[in-house]
Design a protein around this nucleic acid. Structure first.
Lengths: 262, 262
DNA sequence: AGCCGCTTGTGAACGCAGGCACAAAGTCGT
DNA sequence: ACGACTTTGTGCCTGCGTTCACAAGCGGCT
């Protein structure tokens, strides 16, 4: 299973070999990409969004401290994250916003277009198909699929809905890279299999099921019920803590108070 | 005005002084709840969903091995996760499905109802308001809000939409615990502040902004663009690896092949 | 030109989560 | 009733991600 693609000496360490002059061309940067922790990748995407906002406001240079504050992270963590991308800062000054944007986009693979197919055009599918954030960020929606015959051919967000039986052929033809599953859980695995057959390499799954996929396919899951339950856990935890504090020292932390952040 | 204690922000919470045996009755279990790692909580929610499916199929007992397979995790990890909840298994046999469901629900705080308010009734807000998974899992939707005057009073999913100016009063009156932000990013912070003023303790944020909140408020973020970019990164990484292998040994891993999993 | 202060980049320590492997414990079969 | 088998619960270890702290590097000021 798996990812022994890490050729041999996997993660001992990011063994320095850092900003060497060994080879500064494309392969070097790509090789290093393998070592970026997933958590850092997620944050890089956030930095990118913040930086885009900065650029629009005409900011040309930013320090790690400022960027970290805007992104809601520790500045040391931010610098380490950026170091995975490369050394594009100027000591004593900060980072050039445009350069940083370009480099993060390169590392995240946003220089290529990634065609997206959305399967399941219910409420959520509609929302996703109309979501302006996809095409504007380099993720053109190439196809929509559903089983409902009433939807066939109906354009949603400018794209006609097609039948899920055609997923494989259409995805292959249009070179879809990313599949988004917004179907009921009962058909999610079937849809997933079709997407994989169609050559889709990455899947974003909104259905509350655990998908089985071959090793070379990447799946990310967004489960609203799970998110809610995590929040529920925190509500309960907070309530218990408050209770405990009442029991211990009689003071009650401000639960209902109107403390406004920001 | 920033978060009061420090700008460590909500993400990090060093549980520092983890409690011990101060009191061992009901509080004991609750106290322990604080020590459960966030990652484990997320998995517990998944186990709960799988177990519910099992119960419906009439399964009354399940081993850690089976449950782990169904949930897509390692069995050792599963047992460790369950050990945070307590010792409810029978050695040599496994776990009683119903007991496990009850205990996980208790730990996740699902024995109480958590009222939810959804703000921003656009495409996504519609999807969320109509999402059957919320009420059926103990998260009744208590209120919907938007700015669009055309929407005022219109029932969505059976609940009338109200104006965001009334967020604070209505949330307080209906004792809303959880706020869901599905607005454009420009108003997300304002909406967030109103929710917090209304006594909301937990927020699920779909807007692509970093929210500032007081320390006692928990925020979870779901950012579709970030998810897509993470997938993009993996697409790029895979392509590079394939390229590297071609360069090295001339073999090409099956990228376009139709390998059907599961 | 040289020094000073600021900010980056990173080595190193730390803490947490994950995985292994085994003892404890309970059941089933004889 | 007893032994063998099965499965849980957990101590320990490993590895990753985060944080700290500081040396290196660069610009600006005198």
């Amino acid at each position: 299973m798996a990812a022994q693609r890490d050729q041999g000496h996997n993660g001992d360490q990011p063994p320095a070999a850092v900003t060497d002059v060994s080879a500064r061309d494309v392969p070097a940067a790509r090789e290093r990409a393998r070592a970026i922790p997933e958590a850092a990748v997620a944050r890089l995407a956030v930095y990118l969004r913040v930086l885009s906002g900065m650029a629009e406001e005409g900011v040309s240079t930013i320090s790690s401290e400022e960027l970290a504050a805007a992104a809601g992270v520790n500045s040391a963590k931010l610098r380490k994250d950026l170091s995975y991308v490369g050394s594009y800062g100027t000591r004593g000054v900060g980072y050039d916003v445009d350069v940083l944007i370009s480099e993060i986009e390169r590392i995240l693979g946003l220089t290529r277009k990634h065609s997206v197919a959305v399967v399941g055009i219910g409420n959520l599918g509609h929302a996703l198909a109309n979501y302006g954030g996809f095409p504007s960020r380099g993720f053109p929606v190439a196809a929509l699929f559903d089983v409902d015959s009433d939807l066939m051919g109906v354009p949603v967000g400018g794209i006609p809905v097609e039948h899920i039986d055609d997923i494989e052929a259409i995805c292959r033809e249009r070179e879809v890279n990313i599949g988004v599953i917004a179907t009921p859980p009962s058909v999610a695995q079937d849809v997933c299999d079709r997407l994989v057959s169609g050559g889709v390499q990455c899947i974003l799954n909104f259905a509350p099921v655990v998908l089985g996929v071959p090793d070379h396919v990447e799946v990310r899951k967004v489960d609203l019920a799970v998110e809610m339950q995590i929040l529920s856990f925190h509500v309960a935890r907070r309530a218990d803590e408050a209770l405990a504090e009442v029991t211990v020292d009689g003071t009650r932390p401000g639960v209902g108070e109107a403390v406004v952040g920001r």
